[in-house]
């Protein structure tokens, strides 16, 4: 549990950070909250020669409304997210989910960017970003580009990010007023990753589901969008038979690993239950 030696860099601008990462190449890793990287370094599963600490870059922090979107700087902490009136008002599901991330100590340090960027299937924010239709702003040596959250995740710890690129901010379209939302997360204890979790954002019209998006956390190598399950519920009043079909459709795309949280069959089973419960609760709190 003792890391190897490394050089430490603390740039103060995004340009410098990108330049450092590009110049130092594969041996450099950006450091945000460190909750994933530092334990890996302690186990020497990661042995970067250079750490580029992003805490000195003021531009990477903050939450602001930009028309119909909310922009979140990559170095915004989960605590900042929870403290934001804008998030609580316009994207309440993020507020709800952030509260389910570990404990206050972790949330003071852990960043939204770190949570979404490194492709850990256990993290909560990636599935939420997919559900909300967020895009990521990646800055690189050749300038910036936007990547949809849904296109970002390719495998466990394997993402669309290219060498030298850095996640700078997240842009989230504000869901319509009166939308229903829920993030149902089953976990063994505070601080644990989800055994299974489901995010639902939907709108209701005349007692029936008008639009619906369902995201799944830690039920595959990457976060998932359960499109077929969402299709099942659109136009319905979420009767028992529909919920059952939706859960089955969601379970069909789940491919969790067997671990201490339970065997595959259990994790898929409770994954289906999380989808059902999230749908019911989202419908109940929709206007």
């Amino acid at each position: 549990m003792i890391p190897g030696s490394f050089s430490y860099h603390r740039p103060t601008t995004l340009v410098d950070a990108v330049k450092l990462l590009w110049t130092l190449g594969d041996e450099a890793r950006p450091l945000a909250g460190g909750h994933s990287l530092v334990p890996m370094m302690k186990l020497r599963l990661a042995t970067p020669e250079h750490l580029v600490d992003l805490h000195g870059i003021a531009d990477l922090k903050g939450i602001r409304r930009d028309g119909s979107k909310v922009l979140i700087g990559a170095m915004t902490t989960q605590h900042d997210l929870l403290a934001s009136d804008e998030v609580a008002r316009s994207i309440p599901i993020l507020h709800e989910a952030a509260l389910l991330i570990a404990d206050p100590q972790v949330r003071y340090r852990g960043t939204v960017g770190g949570n979404v960027a490194n492709g850990d299937p256990g993290n909560d924010m990636p599935a939420l970003m997919m559900t909300l239709g967020a895009t990521y702003r990646l800055e690189g040596p050749d300038g910036g580009r936007e990547v949809a959250a849904a296109d970002y995740y390719q495998g466990a710890y394997f993402t669309a990010i290219e060498p030298g690129e850095l996640l700078a901010s997240i842009s989230i379209p504000v869901p319509p007023a009166g939308h229903g939302f829920a993030y149902e997360k089953l976990k063994r204890k505070v601080g644990d990753y989800a055994t299974a979790a489901a995010a639902v954002v939907l709108t209701m019209s005349g007692g029936k589901v008008a639009t619906c998006t369902i995201g799944l956390t830690n039920l595959s190598e990457t976060p998932l969008l359960a499109d077929a399950a969402a299709k099942e519920v659109i136009g319905t009043g979420l009767d028992a038979a529909t919920l059952k079909k939706a859960a089955a459709a969601a379970e069909a795309i789940m491919a969790p690993a067997a671990d201490a949280r339970g065997p595959i069959e259990y994790r898929k089973h409770v994954g289906g239950i999380m989808v059902t419960r999230a749908l019911q609760r989202a419908a109940a709190n929709a206007a």
């Binding site: 404990d103 063994r188 204890k189 505070v190 601080g191 644990d192 671990d259 201490a260």
Partner: peptide
């Protein structure tokens, strides 16, 4: 817990259940 090959699979508080005040 050990797996069938004799690897100990509960080697950290991530896997070894240590309840917090919440649980």
């Amino acid at each position: 817990r050990y797996d069938a090959e004799g690897n100990v699979v509960t080697g950290s508080f991530m896997d070894f259940f240590m309840p917090t005040a919440v649980e």
